[in-house]
Design a binder for these strands. Structure first.
Length: 461
RNA sequence: UCCUCGAUGGCUCAAUAGGCAGAGCGGGUGACUGUUAAUCACUAGGUUGUAGGUUCAAGUCCUACUCGAGGAGCCA
């Protein structure tokens, strides 16, 4: 007999004579001669209750059916006479699939701190909060693919291993098959001559440059994959391994880019609200009381849009004491970004046209010669959710910018080659998937929206 | 990497002014014919993060280290 997922059993239209339920025991409540078992199988937030009484042949094993144990219950799905649930299972057979010694099993019925659960990341998917988080993560991933597919984008797979050591987005992790010690460089050449690829290789920090190459053939593409940054960042918003969504669109400018970023954010938030109501309710109730208001606001209100220059004027005029100076040409600090999103506009803000000197070489130079067509989406509580730009499609300007930034154009020969053959305006951005999940769930630490977080000094599991 | 705060039973925390280390939850045992993070009774469980120092006496004061959290920088 095939097992019925609890999510399906709970939505049953009518009673069922025979049903098989498998799951982990969340709690057991004993009475004289029978027990209530609450089981969860991860298919949804809710548990299914089974009543096991002395008529069940294996009733004597009930004492080993403790919180955390895995069980298989055969029985009848009947309307529940008790309050709190529509259906329950009246057990006829009970099988203990896996015990969980009550002395050792670390998960209690009561709430645990996030810090403690992080130490037992192998068990936290069994809790309500983390089960909900990872179900939402899955649903959000699906929504993103759906969004782009509906809009005629192609999902492209850009490399994880990269030979370029200068993608311009932070420190990289080196990939090597050389022994850990005793490797010497040949007289003429580099140590990497004898390495797997014959040159230095790294884990990607962004699929953007390759996505651009694909967009120049496929038109509208996006990548959705892991990225790696070897920055020694110790904050609730940074991880060394995180997932990024990077669309890249040919024949598009920065205006189109901002429209796409806003539309995508709204789409995912709406999809989660429509499809993960139970899980979202848990977050709205126990994690962040203001979650629902903020999500409704994201869906219903247009994002604010200000140029960098306007933002600097706004911040200068604000009656606030800034810890860091506000001055045209200096990048916005966290306190400035938070003020714009949380206090001034009280909603997501897109800041565009940044000074060229604080942005990457590939961003398109504006006509003023001072700013580039960049855009950042800043959201309350999290800060930068998205960073993107229109890309420089003019060969002469691009080369000038590469040189200006002190880089070698030869390292980017394939990137600049695109500007020689049928170059067109194009634009794209990168969205941090974990930051999106923090926004959607109200969870305040990135380490709690990814199952097995990698941060400096942490790679357990 | 810098700044601030913290570390006490399995978990979450308390311990006045340096003076006998406690509670709730969880665990164990028992009670209860419908419970809902069940309830009730009893019970076990600690070298106070590590190393050193001050003191008659240190969970408490001092030094170093380790780990954790928050803020900053870097960014997604």
């Amino acid at each position: 007999m095939r097992r019925t997922p609890i999510v399906d059993a709970l939505q049953a239209e009518e009673a069922t004579k025979e049903i098989k339920i498998c799951g982990w025991v969340r709690t057991r409540r004993d009475a004289k001669g029978f027990s209530f078992l609450e089981m969860n199988d991860g298919s949804c937030l809710k548990n299914l209750q089974a009543i096991v009484d002395e008529s069940v042949p294996t009733y004597e094993i009930i004492k080993d059916v403790t919180t955390g144990a895995a069980v298989e219950v055969l029985g009848e799905l009947v309307p529940s006479p008790g309050k709190g649930q529509k259906w329950e299972v009246r057990a006829t057979e009970l099988k203990l699939l896996g015990t969980a010694d009550a002395d050792d099993f670390p998960l209690q019925k009561k709430r645990h701190s996030d810090e403690f659960l992080r130490q037992i990341a192998h068990l936290r998917p069994r809790t309500n909060k983390y089960g909900a988080t990872f179900r939402i993560r899955s649903e959000a991933s699906f929504a993103i693919h759906n969004f782009y597919r509906d809009k005629g984008f192609f999902n492209v797979h850009t490399p994880i291993l990269t030979g370029s050591d200068c993608e311009g987005a932070g420190e990289m992790f080196r990939v090597s098959t050389l022994p850990a010690t005793g490797v010497e460089a040949p007289k003429e050449g580099s140590v990497f001559d004898n390495d797997f690829f014959g040159r230095e290789a790294n884990l990607t920090v962004s699929g953007q440059l390759e996505a651009e190459l694909l967009a120049m053939g496929l038109g509208k593409v996006y990548t959705f994959g892991p990225t790696f940054r070897a920055e020694n960042s110790n904050t609730p918003r940074h991880a060394a391994e995180f997932w990024m969504i990077e669309p890249e669109v040919a024949f598009a400018d920065n205006e189109d880019n901002m429209d796409l970023a806003e539309e995508m954010t709204k789409y995912v938030v709406k999809h989660i609200l429509d499809n993960c109501a139970d899980d979202i309710e848990l977050f709205a109730k126990f994690v962040d009381k203001e979650l629902m208001g903020r999500l409704e606001n994201i869906i219903n209100e247009p994002f604010a849009r200000v140029s960098y220059t306007e933002a600097v004027e706004l911040l200068s005029a604000a009656k606030k004491k800034w810890e860091f100076p506000v001055e045209w040409g200096i990048d916005l600090q966290t306190e400035h970004e938070r003020y714009l999103a949380e206090e001034h506009f009280k909603k997501p803000v897109i800041v565009y046209d940044y000074p060229k000197d604080i942005k990457a070489f590939y961003m398109r130079m504006n006509d003023d010669g001072k700013t580039v067509a960049a855009m950042d989406v800043l959201v309350p509580r999290i800060g930068e959710l998205i960073g993107g730009s229109q890309r420089e499609e003019r060969m002469d300007v691009l080369l000038e910018r590469i040189n200006e930034m002190g880089q070698n154009p030869e390292d980017y020969w394939w990137y600049t080659d695109l500007r020689r053959f049928g170059s067109v305006p194009h634009a794209g951005f990168g969205m941090g998937f974990e930051r999106l999940l923090m926004l959607v769930t109200g969870i305040s630490n990135i380490r709690d929206v990814i199952p097995f977080p990698r941060t400096p000094q942490h790679i357990e599991f």
